[in-house]
Design a protein around this nucleic acid. Structure first.
Lengths: 138, 138
DNA sequence: CCCGATGCCTTGTCTCACAAGGCATCAAGC
DNA sequence: GCTTGATGCCTTGTGAGACAAGGCATCGGG
């Protein structure tokens, strides 16, 4: 793990970090993104099954890197989702010497994802209500 | 506090709660909304100063109730924002026998709000990237 | 006086994110 | 063979914030 290469976020993000102080901005972003991990993971899994490490990389590189999830978060989350019946896990080698643990959505998981998605949309709409009020005053 | 009247959320929300099981849906919504409290509070304060209890009521009634914040959360948050210099607090009676503690945004708080707002917008855009991928497959 | 509404505060508990430590396998280089 | 780095999964202790609930106070009405 410690040998994990440090990857720079995509271009624009670096500039913003420099302007505000990376540690504070990092913390701010992380706090804002709290609560989105489950939706992010489930939505990525909805297109096809993936193994844990693949999910880590994908989430770090997609969506401007703002939906990044760390392994200390991901694996416990995957286990919770598995316990809840939203996903299933299976070890598969796939013509490789070394197996990976693949995760895939269950039908129940697809239902849950649809629900989560609806709630996210509602939340975003609700927040827009507040922010648009601000716009009205300006 | 225990005498606080129980208010039903707006119409549609009740029906959804009945379909899924209110405790589970409540938990889901709360987890999804984690991280939004600060943005919500600051944006409400941006239009004009308000006292704590007023904020509680406003956030419960606005945005479909999805941005509700409880007092155990609000007051510590207000104190944190005050410590950070984003808001100021002042006790005012305003022709009433009983004073209230009003909170208002500082110029620094306005800057912070603008930053938070930008980050929220980016987060929503990032999530849309994932969810649109899902749409593409469907 | 009692009760409910209004208003602010705090504490203990819960939940989840994160850093970091740990283990394992594989492949390349010395 | 040994070492190192990449790949892959897991877990634990810590930190931070949300929440329930308890507490205090004032005011007004019965």
């Amino acid at each position: 793990m410690r040998s994990m290469p440090n990857r720079s976020p995509s271009g624009g993000v670096d500039e913003r970090a420099a302007a505000t102080g990376a540690p504070a901005l990092d913390r701010l972003r992380r706090e804002l993104a709290r609560g989105t991990a489950e939706l992010a993971v489930l939505s990525v899994l909805s297109t096809r099954r993936r193994y844990g490490y693949e999910l880590l990389k994908l989430l770090r590189e997609t969506g401007g890197g703002l939906l990044e999830v760390k392994e200390g978060t991901l694996y416990p989350l995957l286990h919770r989702l598995e316990d809840a019946g939203h996903i299933t896990a299976s070890w598969e080698a796939e013509g490789r010497a070394r197996p990976r643990k693949y995760y895939s959505l269950t039908p129940d998981g697809r239902t849950h994802l649809a629900l989560l998605r609806g709630e996210w949309t509602a939340l975003v709409a609700g927040m827009r209500t507040l922010l648009d009020t601000l716009d009205g005053v300006d």
